[in-house]
Design a protein around this nucleic acid. Structure first.
Lengths: 187, 187
DNA sequence: GTTAAATCTAAGCAACTGCTTAGTTATAGT
DNA sequence: ACTATAACTAAGCAGTTGCTTAGATTTAAC
């Protein structure tokens, strides 16, 4: 009875996600999304309700794509060594040619004001905590590790990972790998 | 022959700087600056040319205010211990009551797009490099330190410091101090 | 007191923001 | 072929952005 959609929602979200990743949430306008996704504003709002909806779908996709790395970490049984591999894998994952885009989530956490967009903020915090939990889980695998220190070590690793998201825009690849190497020295 | 200015430029920049610090560059509008600085838009443009001008003056003031800490580091002769103290001092400096605002410069680096505002970006990079140079200088004071490793250690420290700027918005004070403690374990 | 210049206020500019609405076009069941 | 319905296009909404301009006000030298 009705006309068919001339675009695939999964395909256009992929394009939107990459734009958000490069650009950040606030400074990506609906007009830019229109061009990048190749569909009209009306269609964007029909499919995803609003800009926030497009972003939340983008995070879901980001989450699915990064799963290939987090799964490796989740299935690893080699303690801190698995986390170290996650750091290197993440660096690879966040690269687009010679440019490091950082983590979509971390970039946005840093951009969004705490109480300006609670829905997005909640989604972002949920993501970060899930990574930290994987760190804790893997740290516990090392038998000789001091159990009281594990939480502090997880925070230390999160700090380094957050830092890497900024550093990757300033330092070159060799330096970034040196930073990772040094980060794991005390663990 | 002419009317007197009804405001003190240094005073209004102090207010502008604190607003930028809390809010970021992009999401601070000229209307907000107007209210916070207590002067009309015309006066802002007359005194500082444009929004960018207000921000550049704000960075100068920020630089002057953080000098009390960087001077301590610059005059210190105790190597890595001096840098550790800088980290703790910076945490104190960036606090406003119970809230940590991070570093004005790091916050803005993360917000500004690389090629959208080269003038501001250049000013920010200059600031970051000057901090890193102080780290290198202090690391060299430790006689037993491996000279080849010093540059890598400086990058590692910058990464931790950049991370702290984000972490301070997520973690509580006790955790932040634990992160600093762990950061200096391998040094 | 007059005059000239700097400083003030407030209105207004074009370009942009996220989002909506009116009207046209394509599609599938009858 | 006709018709109901969803998907399309493009124009337009009110609100905000950084910045400017027109005109009133204050000041100090003469």
């Amino acid at each position: 009875m009705a006309r068919k959609k001339q675009y695939n929602e999964a395909e256009v979200i992929e394009k939107a996600m990459r734009l958000f990743w490069r650009n950040g949430y606030e400074s990506t306008s609906v007009r830019m999304l229109e061009k990048e996704m190749g569909i009209n504003q009306f269609s964007i709002y029909a499919s995803f309700k609003n800009k926030e909806g497009v972003f939340l779908e983008s995070i879901k996709l980001y989450n699915a794509q990064i799963k290939s790395i987090t799964n490796t970490l989740e299935n690893s049984n080699n303690g801190v060594e698995g986390i170290k591999n996650y750091f290197y894998d993440f660096l690879d994952f966040s690269r687009e040619g010679a440019i490091f885009k950082g983590c979509l989530v971390t970039n946005t956490v840093n951009e969004i004001k705490e109480n300006s967009n609670p829905i997005i903020m909640a989604a972002l915090k949920r993501f970060s905590l899930s990574i930290r939990e994987l760190f804790v889980r893997n740290l516990k695998q090392d038998d000789e590790r001091d159990v009281k220190e594990i939480e502090a070590q997880a925070d230390y690793l999160m700090n380094a990972l957050l830092g890497l998201s900024i550093s990757s825009k300033v330092f070159n690849e060799a330096k970034l790998k040196d930073i990772i190497r040094m980060t794991f020295l005390p663990l």
